[in-house]
């Protein structure tokens, strides 16, 4: 499959601080790579290098087949960038903003006007198009910002935390817009702090921390890395814990993890249905009356915390 965004060993240093310490990425055509990481992990720096805003100290990157260092103009013709804040001219109207960017994208005055109208219509911004951007709500601003990055029909879209600070409805609208772009064959690199967002949209996820990609794969692959499904049993009081531990150990032949505060015991499940049934009867036989009994899939939160060195409190 054609690789549209590729980075090898990207390093970037600011004084003493090494923001990127050898980032490798590759994004196949028409897919979305979610770049997931905490604040300061290097997400934005990575996007800025790939979008030609920032020159890396070391390493090589190409976007849509062009080298970001030696052919930045060619790269810029083919990308759309939506930064963390909506980069719009507050005093101009929505339509004027889009037209300006269209002209600067060399669509010509008439071309820019036509394209602006198409996008305003498609992103449901027709009603506010004649109002200055400073009167817009946060969600509307982000939509216009996305429209601005789509003005020249980019092959590659960089979205840097596109939904940070948005209310849930605006977030869902933006997600749909991103899905439309993917369906149209656009290749997307999206940074996010929201695991759910990556889970929802990304074909593959790269977890970045301390300027380095520490894991990548599909959402399922990453979840598998921290273990499969677990059975969680919550008991009513501390006195019940030893009996519950014994019962679960007998059934699964493993030492259950105990989280004392919540009085939660957990074991990983191999043979789901059988183990669940046996655990239930073993607990019953031991006269343990659990107040919670649930099968839990690892969330991306678990993956994230496990990988970035945080503790979930549930590791056995």
């Amino acid at each position: 499959m054609e690789i549209v965004i590729e980075a090898e060993g990207i390093r970037k240093r600011y004084g003493d601080h090494e923001a990127l310490r050898g980032v490798d990425l590759s994004v196949p055509a028409g897919t979305l790579l979610g770049l997931l990481g905490p604040n300061g992990a290097g997400k934005t720096t990575t996007v800025r290098v790939l979008a030609t805003l920032l020159e890396a100290d070391e390493g090589r990157a190409s976007v849509a087949g062009y080298d970001v260092r030696t052919q930045p103009r060619e790269v810029r013709r083919r990308i759309g960038l939506t930064g963390q804040y909506a980069a719009l001219d507050e005093r101009l109207t929505g339509r004027e903003n889009l037209q300006l960017i269209g002209v600067l994208h060399r669509l010509g005055r008439r071309g820019a006007k036509t394209r602006a109208d198409v996008l305003l219509d498609r992103l449901d911004l027709g009603q506010v198009a004649a109002r200055p951007v400073k009167t817009y709500s946060g969600g509307t601003r982000r939509r216009l910002d996305l429209a601005a990055s789509l003005i020249a029909d980019p092959k590659v879209l960089f979205l840097d935390e596109p939904t940070t600070g948005l209310d849930p409805t605006s977030r869902l609208i933006l997600w749909d817009m991103i899905r439309e772009q993917l369906a149209a064959g656009v290749t997307v690199l999206m940074t996010t702090q929201y695991l759910e967002e990556a889970d929802q949209l990304a074909d593959r996820i790269a977890v970045i921390d301390g300027g380095r990609v520490i894991a990548d794969g599909t959402s399922d692959e990453l979840k598998a890395k921290v273990g499969g499904e677990r059975l969680e049993v919550t008991v009513q009081d501390d006195a019940a814990i030893p009996a519950a531990v014994t019962a679960l150990r007998e059934v699964t032949a493993m030492e259950p993890a105990v989280e004392r505060n919540g009085r939660v015991l957990s074991v990983s499940l191999r043979d789901q249905l059988k183990t669940v049934a046996e655990a239930a009867s073993a607990l019953d036989a031991a006269q343990v009356r659990p107040i919670g009994f649930a099968v839990r899939r690892p969330s991306l939160d678990d993956v994230f915390l496990a990988l970035t060195g945080g503790t979930t409190g549930k590791e056995g």
Binding site: A51, G83, Y85, A86, A87, E90, H105
Partner: peptide, 17 residues
Amino acid sequence: DNGVVDRFRSLPMSRSA
């Protein structure tokens, strides 16, 4: 400050424009 320069710099326009 508001990121407009970032947007301009990501466009294929003349550098000094």
